[in-house]
Design a protein around this nucleic acid. Structure first.
Lengths: 164, 164
DNA sequence: TGTTATGTTAAATACATACTGAACGTTTTG
DNA sequence: CAAAACGTTCAGTATGTATTTAACATAACA
């Protein structure tokens, strides 16, 4: 443990790193966010490097991702041309943005694949026996139903409010 | 592409595999689920191996995980002692179970860490200047507020209904 | 203008872990 | 009871990708 770090803070950083890592987002992201969250004043890339024992390149990349999720914010410190960052603490919004980025694109992909599949099936481009075609159509319809359902759930006023 | 597979089914299998992989859950899980979802009749481990070009060991492990999430179901086929599986299609429930397993444990961990942290801080076990301690307390309180909030959100009747 | 400070990028590396293959225990079959 | 059929497990390997390193571009400085 770096000796310049509050022992409690260190444990939160460890946990956060493990969490983000287990979600396939990389360990540094969680570490940096926790580090900033428990920093009384803004920190620079070099500060993160020294505080966490990571490379500056890692810090640069991770901070950009966090910025995209609205999890951290660049702040301007007069008299210093380094970039300073602080953690934003609107967890709901952050989670929403992260989810949106991770599943949003895939949702669109499935939508088009689904549309294409139904088209091919109806146009008779796929030759198969009637039973098989009927089964496929049933599955595709069920998928489309779920797709519509998830859209509605995501856009429901309640969820939008809660993830504000 | 294995030639015994419907071309459309193959594309869904690919997509599903990519999705689960990007979520850090492994590619085979998505592949098997899609394979079963588009199979008119139950399939065995050997069927998955042949249909997807994976090892039987992989299939065994992945199927167990899927079973734990309630995503697949063992079915009994008379006259055959192989284990047969079908895909269950209650997506909401499946997602709920998966999330529960993935974040549930971590939630508990944070809860205890949080409690321990507050305890240490209040008992004066950590020596630090007053400003620093006040800041830490504020952060810990904010975390605890979020923890309570997420509990409520997760247990809200609305969400419970939607993820049924 | 040359020099230093800073953030970014791309190639190389390291790392975590998903997956394979073979061996094992169990159950069925003949 | 022997032999085959299954499912499972675990050590080893392969694979994807997170992270580092070093070179680069840009902007401030003196």
């Amino acid at each position: 443990m770096p000796d310049n770090l509050h022992p409690l803070v260190y444990r939160f950083i460890e946990d956060a790193g493990n969490t983000t890592q287990s979600f396939g987002v990389g360990r540094v992201i969680g570490q940096i966010y926790a580090f900033l969250y428990f920093s009384p004043s803004p920190e620079t890339l070099d500060g993160m490097r020294d505080g966490l024992g990571i490379s500056k390149g890692s810090a640069s990349i991770a901070v950009r991702q966090l910025e995209q999720w609205g999890a951290v914010q660049k702040v301007w410190v007069k008299g210093d041309r380094k970039d300073y960052y602080t953690a934003k603490d609107a967890f709901g919004k952050i989670i929403k943005n992260a989810i949106l980025e991770m599943v949003g694109k895939k949702m669109g992909d499935y939508e088009s694949l689904l549309a294409e599949a139904r088209e091919q099936l109806e146009s008779g481009a796929i030759e198969d026996d009637a039973d098989r075609i009927a089964f496929m159509q049933e599955r595709l319809e069920h998928l489309q139903k779920f797709q519509r359902w998830s859209h509605q759930l995501w856009n429901s006023p309640m969820l939008q409010t809660l993830l504000k």
